[in-house]
Design a protein around this nucleic acid. Structure first.
Length: 794
RNA sequence: GCUGAAGUGGCGGAAUAGGCAGACGCAAGGGACUUAAAAUCCCUCGGAAAGAGAUUUCCGUGCCGGUUCGACCCCGGCCUUCAGCACCA
């Protein structure tokens, strides 16, 4: 054979695979099924980036491997086209989002084919296709029907740059997930999805799915479950109550002030009673002008004492001053807290600043110096005295419930999901706003409610949705009373379409149901779901929520969508920083693929680092993989006429098969590739390879380097490598008949001896003693076929 | 602060049932081939010391201690780095 011409070979096989559709998943095939999925592609750019390669090549390897192992593999591809990322890209390039989506998908497709991805292309869809979003809208209607979607005026995150409402998940760190600008708090009409109803179920998800430890931790953190009590404090000279949430009901005797959030509605209700109402209003204004980010970063406690009213501690009738303070968040608990400075850091700081008394109720610290948050004996607490913290909590909750002044309560940090965006490029809400009937769901028969085409789709400065401009579309009749009505002009967020897409891949062309029950039963949950860890507290939680809901209404037969989740690391620029245009360290995958070829690129992506760790891009390193590919190409020159596996290579090949299987299953591809390099190096050294050996090696290598192996298999064996079986290994042939083991004296290696496999212990010990001329030993430790340790007097 | 993970050559990284630390690859140095370069091939490549030399000895997986015949691996205590969350009551 001539030197390897990867350009020609890759071009040939790319075409062939496309024509043959060789990677189709077969519904209801009797073979065992395997469903592997990597998060589908956002089409917010012209083409793939390095991260896509690192994330997707390993799942292509496992898909190809499982096919060779006889599985019916579902490995689909799709496009997450709706939403801010694509729309912002369209605005930037001055195109229509629809056009941008189309062009970018075409480009992605070409590039992914060049990489050798073995997708079942016939199942692809885009979330912006009406045939798909019909069913996204349908799911929304089910949520509405079951009381899990509701519209309410609320204070939400708003990005002034993207000009739209955002969820908490979309504005982590007070930053817009898309443009990284600061997020503001604004009061708006919000469609909420009642995600908190599923918080407890979501905490159980790790029982259904094998998650990495840190992913579990991140989700636990984000959901933020805490247990405590709600307690009502009466307000002086009124019939009003101030409801607070606390995780420390045991410290109720130590309360010395109350804190309420600046947005708390009680302030309005008590206007007439508050003596310093002007001062309070001024403070509220100040806080409003701070962004939520400033409020978090400026940790210096601020607040104002409310004059004229005070709270009454329900367990001892003490008068407690009330402060308005911006360290109290309206969005958590009841927006009000009881402050126990002796045993809480923030309350302590506030009390010191405003000269509020501090009452110690748990023994164990020095509250003159610092707050004490540990466990200890309750003091100054009447009937709780002498108990420890845990006992006191239980006692107090019982007491509160008996007296009717409080209840046990669980709280979550996670909030309901603000689900509407004031943007054009998203799923329209299948809801009509009628003056007489309120929010009326569209009948399911009218789905999909198509997104109208409008010329100027850009978001509005005052935060009105661009869809309001499509008058013909907006004005409609109420499905209930038939009178004039308007459509909802906000659209769904970019996370809507991705919250159920793995189900649609099972049955992508069904126009009767979102997915058929038969196919759901056949394919079941995704066996392996991979993607970035930026999604574990966003997409993964939304996906879990929707799926639990669909399960509860009987629409899907399994409780959690994924059986195993892995997260890939990032590819960092050569300078160790995240790749970004502004740093000029971006590498375009096509600039690697073109000069080195897809096989070498695929290998290097997996060889140069661990799957779940970040790796720093270093173009030099790819040379080793190019050499390896060229060496593989030369192997037929060393081929003998022997059909069987040679005695010399039997163990070598058996071990290779076992190691590759383990590596693919465990996602440690770097060692798999190094093992294959060792195999080729050994063959070169030995100077021969039998027909059968070459055949098996090419099949083993095929999932990693599909192009060269397909070509070689066809050339040498006149057959299609995709139709072969992955070789199996013989457990008894993993060790040579003669092996070398180290000899230790007192735990230090002093030399090696050759022994027969499973040689008699006494004979091994004799050999070891002879090697070192040792007569007397205190003890010999022999680990069969591994090591021998001789213990002698020092 | 809370939660999670990780510390091994110049670099990426091997070595989990506790058993020869540094596989495989990159970079570097030396040599062969070449008019030259690229490509290719061969050798060296953790540190220190001894020897003309094959070689030998000692030290070495963030630090200190422990368990063990034997520890990168297990246990206890520190240090450092990274990631996520963070005025969540």
């Amino acid at each position: 054979m001539e030197g390897y011409n990867f350009k020609e070979v890759e071009e040939k096989w790319k075409k062939k695979w496309k024509e043959q559709k060789g990677f189709k998943a077969i519904d209801f095939s009797p073979k065992p099924k395997y469903y592997v999925l990597t998060e589908f592609f956002g089409v917010s750019g012209k083409g793939i980036h390095m991260g896509h390669v690192k994330a997707n090549v390993p799942t292509d390897v496992i898909a190809r491997y499982k096919r060779l192992k006889g599985f019916n593999v579902l490995y689909p591809v799709g496009w997450d086209a709706f939403g801010l990322p694509t729309e912002n890209y369209a605005i930037k390039t001055g195109e229509q989002p629809e056009k941008v989506t189309e062009v970018n998908i075409e480009n992605f497709t070409k590039q992914l084919e060049s990489l050798g991805m073995s997708y079942d292309w016939d199942r692809q869809f885009s979330t912006s296709d009406p045939k798909y979003y019909k069913w996204t809208q349908w799911i929304f209607l089910q949520l509405l029907k079951h009381g899990l979607a509701y519209k309410k005026r609320g204070v939400v995150n708003f990005c002034p740059n993207c000009k739209t409402t955002l969820s908490n998940e979309d504005s982590q760190n007070g930053e817009c997930d898309r443009c990284h600008g600061k997020v503001e708090q604004r009061e708006r009409d919000v469609w909420y999805l009642k995600m908190t109803d599923y918080a407890d179920k979501m905490l159980q998800d790790h029982e259904h799915c094998d998650f990495p430890e840190y992913v579990k931790a991140m989700q636990r953190n984000w959901i933020g479950k805490s247990e405590g009590a709600e307690v009502d404090f009466a307000i002086s000279n009124t019939d009003k109550k101030l409801k607070i949430y606390t995780t420390r009901p045991d410290t109720l005797f130590g309360v010395t002030f109350m804190g309420i959030a600046p947005e708390h509605p009680l302030l309005n209700e008590l206007q007439d009673k508050i003596l310093n109402i002007n001062e309070i209003k001024e403070y509220q204004e100040q806080v409003k002008n701070k962004t939520s980010f400033d409020r978090l970063v400026g940790k210096d406690k601020t607040g104002v004492k409310i004059e004229g009213v005070y709270a009454i501690n329900p367990i001892n009738n003490k008068q407690i001053p009330i402060f308005i303070a911006d360290y109290v968040m309206m969005g958590y608990g009841t927006g009000a807290l009881m402050a126990v400075p002796a045993h809480d850091g923030r309350d302590y700081e506030f009390a010191k600043k405003f000269n509020i008394p501090i009452i110690e109720v748990i023994k164990g610290g020095d509250i003159e110096k610092e707050p004490f948050v540990g466990d200890g004996e309750l003091i100054n607490s009447d009937f709780l005295n002498g108990q420890n913290v845990e006992q006191a909590k239980q006692t107090m909750i019982k007491y509160l419930e008996q007296k009717g002044i409080g209840t046990k309560k669980t709280n979550f940090k996670m909030q309901d999901w603000p689900f509407n965006r004031q943007r054009y490029w998203g799923e329209p809400f299948p809801v009509v706003i009628c003056k007489h009937c309120g929010y009326v769901p569209l009948p399911e028969s009218e789905l999909p409610l198509k997104l109208p085409k409008i010329e100027d789709y850009k978001p509005d400065d005052n935060g009105d949705s661009p869809l309001a401009k499509a008058k013909d579309w907006v004005n409609c009749k109420c499905p209930k009373c038939g009178k004039d009505a308007r459509r909802e002009t906000d659209t769904m967020p970019n996370w809507a379409g991705s919250s159920w897409y793995w189900l649609r891949f099972l049955d992508p062309h069904n126009d009767k149901e979102f997915v058929s029950q038969d196919k759901l039963k056949y394919w079941g949950a995704v066996d392996l779901y991979t993607g970035g860890d930026e999604h574990v507290t966003r997409h993964m939680l939304y996906a879990s929520f929707w799926h639990h809901f669909l399960y509860d209404i009987g629409a899907v037969p399994f409780e959690y969508p994924f059986k195993k989740r892995l997260c890939n690391g990032l590819v960092l620029g050569a300078d160790g920083n995240k790749m970004s245009k502004s740093l000029g360290n971006v590498v375009d995958p096509m600039d690697i693929l073109t000069p080195y070829g897809a096989d070498a690129f695929r290998l290097y992506t997996m060889f140069s680092g661990e799957y779940d760790q970040n790796s720093i891009w270093n173009e030099q390193g790819i040379k080793g993989c190019v050499k390896f590919i060229n060496n593989v190409w030369e192997l037929p020159k060393l081929m003998t006429n022997e059909d069987k596996i040679s005695e010399k290579h039997e163990v070598l090949l058996n071990r290779l098969i076992k190691k590759i299987e383990d590596s693919i299953e465990n996602f440690t591809h770097n060692t798999a590739i190094s093992d294959m390099m060792i195999f080729v190096n050994t063959i070169k050294q030995d100077g021969f390879i039998t027909k059968e050996e070459l055949k098996e090696f090419l099949i083993i290598l095929n999932p990693f380097a599909p192009f060269i192996t397909s070509e070689m298999f066809e050339k040498v064996f006149k057959d299609d490598i995709l139709q072969q079986q992955f070789p199996t290994y013989n457990k008894d042939k993993l060790l040579e008949n003669e092996i070398e083991i180290p000899v230790q004296v007192n735990g230090k290696v002093k030399g090696t001896i050759k022994i027969a496999l499973n040689e008699e212990q006494n004979s091994v010990i004799e050999k070891a003693k002879n090697l070192l001329n040792l007569k007397e030993t205190l003890k010999e430790i022999y680990v069969p076929n591994k090591i021998i340790n001789l213990i002698v007097k020092k």
